[in-house]
Nucleic acid binder design. Structure first.
Lengths: 329, 329
DNA sequence: GCGGTAAAGTGAAACGTTTCACTTCAGTAT
DNA sequence: ATACTGAAGTGAAACGTTTCACTTTACCGC
């Protein structure tokens, strides 16, 4: 490993001068600077990031903490984050759940964080967030200075979905829930049930955990009970897809036997048969927005702007009755 | 930020002692150690990773360099990598393509790398790889000490796919190629064409770049030409799915109008209509294998074991003729 | 009570940068 | 000539650890 010292020696200057020359700081003559740059080039010099960060107490890096890579849910968010990062001189690190993620956060190897990992608890985040370490949380509603909670507008999408079902005359509905500890699930479920109550309906809730298999099992259970609902709202698309699979196995089809709606609009949603009605959340924007705000804060302390990422209901085949014209109440 | 010095002061010991106590190294009495640990706890102390890494010249981190997040291609690989990492005391960083990725690599912020980003050229990798910095490349055939090239057995899968098509009596075939700079594409194309020649067939090649849209365009072009092939092999699933979309728009369907085969077995493959025949590569194993080898090397210099990740052809609906029983030549 | 040994603890250097405070020197206004 | 200025460059401290080499203390066998 060649160090700054080597470069300085080769260029015949002091370490200080070499540093200034390479960083284009200080007042260094053109000839000298040129010599230093050449020396660095010849020696294939690259500054040691640790020494630099140690001294500068800044890493020019933001960290994204997610729980896992699979499920294609993070893809677009990460793309959104990445797209913003590319326009800055920050670097991006993505870290999946593990003790190491926590270590990473604690050890301040990044200047700011975007947290998307429910295994990191609220307490840690509150403790960690500070003037010098802003945090954007994407999966929980958390108040605090230096914390931005960026959620999407679950309520709106769910309401639209409910309307869509209700206006088609469907009355007997069920809800398949996502993971217990999920803020999004809670909000979706609450909204759906409230909406139902407001329209005089009672909606049973079946447990799930956001995985395809849990949706499949909920489907089996509901179908086996023999008491078929007319419509089922699943708290995310993966469960909805599992539910469709269960229906297919029992020879049932959506939307005629049961109308199905999911949430997220994952890429798969438009490929399954029937295509899946869902609530779209622009995850790319979500990631981009989080990143913008975080970097703006880091750069000039622009205060966080809490806002809700919009959602919109997307009607596809799985919930759109064709031979059953809408009968408004 | 509380430092080791603060902890030492609070515990009434020297910095050295505090360091030894926290790292469980050196010879420190139980009582003292306890006092240090308490002090650290009370002060909410976390060691500064930069200082530590600077001194130890080791980061306990491996870096994965990918070109982008989308396409669901990396998901399983990353899961495979992650699963192995979890069993070690290494950390995992994923870094998407950008100048920063390059910077990261150069600045040695990781102990070893898994490279999956064709924008990083061979030269850099050869220059970088060393005894102290082993690199696993997943997307190119590169020889070098301290470099492991971990590819999958493209040839085998392609041959099986070809056989499958040929044995069903299909003779007029076409190939839709992936990105020019891709080793995998080159190998798939070469194998397919060779196989064709060996069976006396001539196969036109249409350009693509692995994206869904490029497959769609190739489909449009081929269909519009009016000269339909009986079978089309696409260099990956995304293009195959794009091709299917083009066919659907022209009112054609697979496999009866054109039999379609892809490569990769992405999750989507079994959800599209018709389900997509493809060559499966166990990407999870791929990532896991890369990680194992890298970590083994880092730990005890276990030499790299070049091997090919197996592939297997998976016949699904898009290429399996039903009313056309196989007619072996 | 003596040398020897092991345990417990410490001082200071080192890792590779950045940056503050300083020196040197040439040029310029008076 | 003198004093001042600004440009060009340097020495050394600092960032927060780890770890080498060392000291002190206590204990042991004899």
């Amino acid at each position: 490993m060649t160090t700054l010292k080597d470069v300085a020696k080769r260029a015949g200057v002091s370490v200080t001068t070499a540093s200034y020359a390479l960083n284009e700081t200080g007042t260094i003559g053109d000839a000298t600077r040129k010599r230093v740059l050449e020396a660095a080039e010849e020696l294939n010099y690259h500054p040691n990031a640790f020494a630099r960060n140690l001294k500068k107490r800044k890493t020019q890096t933001i960290g994204v903490f997610i729980s896992r890579f699979s499920g294609s849910f993070y893809e677009e968010i990460l793309e959104g984050i990445h797209s913003v990062i590319l326009g800055t001189d920050y670097e991006l690190l993505v870290c999946p759940e593990s003790r190491s993620a926590r270590r990473m956060l604690l050890h301040r190897q990044v200047d700011g964080a975007i947290v998307f990992d429910s295994t990191i608890n609220d307490e840690s985040i509150l403790k960690l967030a500070s003037h010098h370490f802003p945090i954007v949380v994407m999966d929980r509603d958390l108040e605090g200075d230096y914390i931005l909670s960026l959620l999407h507008d679950n309520a709106r999408g769910v309401r639209e979905a409910f309307c869509h079902l209700y206006e088609q005359g469907l009355r007997k509905m069920a809800f398949v829930a996502g993971a217990d500890d999920s803020y999004d699930n809670a909000e979706r479920q609450r909204t759906f049930l409230n909406e139902a109550v407001a329209h005089g309906l009672e909606v049973p809730v079946f447990p799930g955990n956001f995985t395809e298999i849990s949706g499949y099992k909920a489907g089996q259970q509901i179908i086996a009970s023999g008491d078929l609902p007319e419509a089922v709202f699943c708290a995310n698309d993966q469960m909805a897809i599992g539910f469709l699979r269960a229906m297919a196995e029992y020879g049932l089809s959506a939307p005629n036997d049961i109308a199905i709606v999911g949430f997220d609009d994952i890429p798969l949603a438009r490929y399954v048969t029937p295509t899946l009605s869902t609530v779209g959340t622009s995850r790319f924007e979500w990631g981009a927005s989080a990143t913008h705000q975080l970097i703006d804060f880091l750069e000039d302390e622009t205060p966080f702007q809490p806002n809700r990422i919009p959602t919109v209901f997307i009607a596809r085949a799985s919930s759109t009755l064709v031979n059953n014209p809408s009968e408004k109440p």
